[in-house]
Design a protein around this nucleic acid. Structure first.
Lengths: 150, 150
DNA sequence: GAATTTTTGTTGCATTTGCAATAAAAATAA
DNA sequence: TTATTTTTATTGCAAATGCAACAAAAATTC
């Protein structure tokens, strides 16, 4: 038992809190930056995939995107082949905010890794990817109604 | 730019989501487990410290604890020397749920670290502690109204 | 082909979250 | 001592979050 869970929770809440405060002046309310960056990086993505990517409830993603659309950051477009889905694209306004978010994220990344060697930073990234893949599997399972035994 | 931020965010949201689902049957609603474990491990702690420890807004902590008290998991006690503070203690009911939370956390910790060697797990823990300390400093600064320059 | 299941999206409701503002006790400064 | 600042707790809003339930299109099975 290494208790990395708590460290990860503290880091995530701190960073999210900082981002939310810093993006407020760009009219992005709580959590919206998460969705907007990903739409910019994956134009045409649908909200279902976005929710999976971010690891958030489908309905939460739906409403966050709804709000991003209302506020003019993203646009929903129907697909001719598949009338069920709505592809998401950044608007001009969304594209304009993207570098701001990116810049902040890069800065926070730098802050987080301060005092670590390049090797250590790479190791941290590698291990976190592995941990994420592990945890992701359980999340998928539990979210779909599965019951973990332990 | 290693982009550990997103990995950490995904891991944290996944684990939190799983915990919230799993603790529902013990009448712990969203996020409450975070506070309860810490009160059990630090009996007499005050909510201000708890908020700092968890990295959550003071008012959010206040209400989470309020609810834990209402539902009989923790108890608030005044201090004779300092009439401002209210010390927090687990009740019998709180103590009884503690091992359940602990057990779940240990399990999730194991899941997260699956496939990593003991050395790698230790390295991950060490690096995460360092990252957390780094990020924590910025959180304190920004939460107190400081403006990061970048 | 028709029937069933999965995927994708939405809305209603209850709850959590957090900022702003307030209050009061305690600590510090003057 | 008195005045000011910091600490701690609370409440009023407004907003995000997520579960449950529903609907409709698409994919799969029979």
């Amino acid at each position: 038992m290494t208790d990395i869970l708590r460290e990860i929770g503290m880091i995530a809440r701190s960073l999210d809190s900082i981002s939310n405060i810093e993006f407020k002046e760009y009219d992005l309310t709580k959590g919206q930056y998460l969705y907007l960056v990903r739409v910019c990086e994956h134009p045409g993505i649908i909200q279902e995939k976005l929710a999976e990517m971010i690891k958030v409830d489908r309905t939460t993603a739906a409403r966050a995107i709804q709000k991003l659309e209302t506020n003019g950051f993203v646009e929903k477009r129907g697909d001719e082949r598949n009338r069920k889905i709505k592809k998401l694209f950044p608007t001009k306004k969304g594209e304009d905010v993207y570098p701001v978010i990116k810049r902040e994220n890069v800065h926070s990344d730098g802050v987080a890794l301060a005092g670590l060697s390049a090797d250590e930073a790479e190791t941290a990234a590698r291990l976190l990817r592995k941990i994420r893949a592990n945890v992701e599997a359980d999340w998928d399972f539990v979210k779909k109604g599965g019951k973990r035994e332990y």
